[in-house]
Simulated assay, not measured.
Amino acid sequence: MTNYETLQQATAEHRQWLLETPVIQRALSGDITKAPYLAFLEQAYHHVKQTVPLMMACGARLPERLEWLRGALVEYIEEEYGHQAWILDDIRALGGDPDATASARPAPATELMVRYVRDVIAHDNPIGFFGMVHVLEGTSTAIATQAAEQIRQGANLPADAFRYLESHGSLDVGHLAFFEEQINRLEDPADLQAIIDTANMVYRLYGAMFRNLERDAGSQSSHEELGHALV
């Protein structure tokens, strides 16, 4: 079994929990309104804008034995830079307020996801960052393009409000193949385990982010919402 196959197997349960999120299932069937899609974009902005800083932090802390992986990160950074601007354009096309999104604080699950990965990089094994890559890009290739089409048709939304989802659905197919190649080059089992552990945590936090999109903000505190979403 390759490293990538091991990673897929070790994270399958948490991946399924994410994909079974009700709002994701409704999006894939076209049974969704503009509000949760806009809420998704608002949260996506806050973790996407951290992607490049997290990559740079990871690259700075990788040991010399993983110099080849640092080189791969350089290439990846060039492709990922500035994608949060696409999200703001989508928000604007939906009639939302991109400036308010950019200045707002992210929801608890979104903030915790970014902070967790940052902590793994700084205080644990920096290669754990690739667990987040595995979750976000794997989820994107699985549902992004299909979801974009279904949401647009189901909610009758403007075509120019889907640049982020549509671009990442196809773009991340190539990224995922590149990611698999890098993961399979790892030789230390501890490195693979760090990626698995981070991926499983990110699956839970990313899933919690989705589970909170349609919750009534006035019915319970944000911390209560997060607690329920993680169960």
Rank of each mutant, 00 (worst) to 15 (best):
P36M: 12
H14R: 05
H175D: 11
T2F: 07
L226G: 08
G95T: 00
Y116S: 01
Q50M: 15
R65L: 04
C58E: 15
E80P: 01
V48S: 06
R105F: 11
M201F: 07
V74C: 11
V202C: 08
T198H: 00
N212W: 04
E137H: 12
F40I: 00
E225V: 06
L41G: 00
R105P: 00
I32M: 01
L69F: 14
A199W: 09
G227A: 15
N125K: 05
F179S: 10
R92L: 06
T145V: 05
S222A: 12
K34R: 12
A194G: 01
A159P: 05
T51S: 11
Y37R: 04
Y4A: 05
N3H: 08
T51R: 11
D97S: 08
Q50K: 14
L94K: 00
M209K: 04
T51C: 10
L112A: 13
E137Q: 10
I87C: 11
V135C: 02
F40E: 06
R65K: 14
V52R: 09
V133F: 14
A100I: 00
L62T: 07
I196L: 05
I151E: 06
L136H: 08
F129W: 05
H223Q: 10
M132F: 15
Q220C: 10
R115G: 14
H228G: 03
R185E: 03
Q146T: 10
R204Q: 15
Q193G: 03
S221D: 02
Y206H: 15
Q220S: 02
I32S: 01
F130H: 02
T110M: 09
N184M: 03
A122I: 04
I127L: 11
D124F: 11
Y4N: 09
P36N: 10
E166R: 08
T6C: 11
A194K: 00
Y4R: 10
M56I: 14
T11A: 05
D124I: 02
P189I: 12
I127A: 03
L73G: 08
A72V: 02
L54P: 03
P53T: 13
H83P: 06
G138N: 12
L54Y: 09
L230P: 09
G218T: 06
V74R: 01
F130M: 02
G30T: 02
R70V: 13
G59R: 15
F129L: 12
A144W: 09
G138D: 14
A44G: 04
L28N: 01
I143K: 07
D191Y: 13
A100C: 04
I32P: 01
A161Y: 08
